[in-house]
Each structure stands twice: as C-alpha cells, then as structure tokens.
Amino acid sequence: MKILSLSGFVPEQICDIVRFTQYDGSHTISHYCGYAADFISQVMEDETIDGAVFPKSCDSSRVLSSYLMESGKFLYQIPVPSSSDRAAVSYMATSIRQYQKAIEDFYKISIKDIEKRVERINERNASLKEQYGKLGEGVIYSRYLREIHNLLKTPLLEQQISNIEAGKKGDGKRIYLIGSFLSNCRVLESIEKSGMCIVGDNFPESKRLVFAPEVSAMGDIYENIAVSMLHTQLSPTQNRFSELIVNDLAEIKKKDVEGVIYISQKYCEPYDYLYYIYRKRLDEMNIPILKITMSDSTDNKKLDFELEAFCDLM
C-alpha cells in the first residue's frame, strides 16, 4: 500500500501516506496549479503508487478526482471545514472514520494501530517543534525543512530525526517565509547563499504540522485528531485570513524579522488572495516582501539576482 497525499489535512494517524513533494510529469493543464498537475502526473504514471488522498480545499484540489478517476487507484477526498467549532469537529471526525473505512475496504486490511501512531506523531512533532524554536540560533532552515520532507516520505514507524543542529548562530538578514508546500527546497539554499537567515515560516509541512496540538489517545480518538487538525496554525484554505495573519505577524515581530519571502505556486488562488492582504500589512510595518511564483513542483527558477537585490533592499 503506497498512498500519495497532497496535503497536511490528510491525517497521518490512520495509516502511512507518502507526502507528495515533486514530480517531473507530463500532465499540464492551462490555468491550473502546476503542483497539483504534477501530483496528477505522479498518481497516473508512477506504478509504485496505488492510491491518492487529497483535500477539498482549493479549486485545483477539488477537481482532482475528475482527472484521476480513470487511474483505477484508491482515491479519497478529505473535507476541510472553515470553522473549528463543535459541528466542524464532529463532521471532520466522521470524515476521518469514513477515510479509514474506505482504506480498509479498498485494501482489504484492518487498521488497528491508530493509538500507537498518535503517540509516535506526538513525539515526532514535539522534536520538530524544538528544532523550529532554534531556527537561526543553531538550526539552519534548509536542513530543517529537508529533514521534514524526508520524514514525510518515510513510513511513520521508521522515521528517525537526524541531528540537524549546526551549533552556531546564523548570521545575515532575518527572513520569514510564507507560502504553500515548498516543493523545491533548492530555493532555500539560494536564499541562504544570498546572505539571509531564515528564522521562521508558515509552510504547511513545517509550522502547521509541528505546531499541531498533541492528540490525546483518551476518549474518541477521531474527534481528538479532528480537534488537533482544526486547531493548529491555519491554512488560507480554511478562509480565516485575519486570524492566520495575526499569528504570523506576531511571530514576525517577536523574531525581529527584516524581510518576508512569499513563495507560491502559479494559479494558487488561496495564496494569491492571501498575498494581497500580507503585502498591505507588511507595508504598514515597513517590512519588505518579495513574492516568488513557482510554475510547478520542479521549477528551478534562477533566483539569485532577485534574492541579492532583495537582500540589498533590506
């Protein structure tokens, strides 16, 4: 069983999933997110993948089933409620139960290790949270994020966190990153090479994953997973931009951030609309912002000149 997952809204507690990072595929769809198109390519072309799970969170992801329906593979769409109130938690918990049942029916298996997985995820996230707290103070961001990407491609019970501490304080202009899943980590090395030190982010695979509240194994475990998923750092796809921005700006202020780099995929509406507000708020705080738009999951844009100019501007 090898299920490719597109989003942090897919609960890892139920079974192993492989988080999609990047794929150089043949599917291109005009005016459509290149990252999602590469996900389609991998599901359709990679014979080692036998299933796909994705959220109903943006226009590209909501129609993924339409493109994948002929694959004959396991397909499941996870809902993303906007609210985190009682009704939303209960609905999300029911959806997680249905997701488990769909997997059990399709793969003819019985899932019995959710509690063990919950415990392991809690421990892993606590370790990663500790690393996050040391960004710029001994942990180099590019190593930190690559480590997370490697973990998310490894079965949960085999995940081992390496020692990524560099042991020295980072120097350079203090940068905060905002964006959707960073498929191409090479951009991070370019940022660091340009003399900037990344001290925080709001990427889904980092902040929203490692800051997810611990899931309790007591009581209704599905509700507990739902509570954790809906009460972690928000995604713009949950449509509560003002709450999301308040949290990020507080961290930006606390960490004396000197500039923000906003990395988004072309045709990613949630982040395009979010940018509109971020830019206004950061202008008011006199913090410069650089927007980088990637065309797909493997885009390896020559950014050095842009990044150097941005560093000079700061």
Partner: peptide
C-alpha cells in the same frame, strides 16, 4: 468553488466586517 470564500476574505479586510463562510 473555493475561490469565492478566498475572495470574500479580502473584502472582509477592506470593510472590516464579519465574514461568514
């Protein structure tokens, strides 16, 4: 679609009024 609630967020920012999704 999911775009409309995203768009409504920037309207909420402009007018500073409650947004219900």
């Amino acid at each position: 679609c999911n775009t409309l609630p995203n768009w409504w967020n920037i309207l909420a920012e402009r007018y500073d009024v409650p947004l219900i999704v």
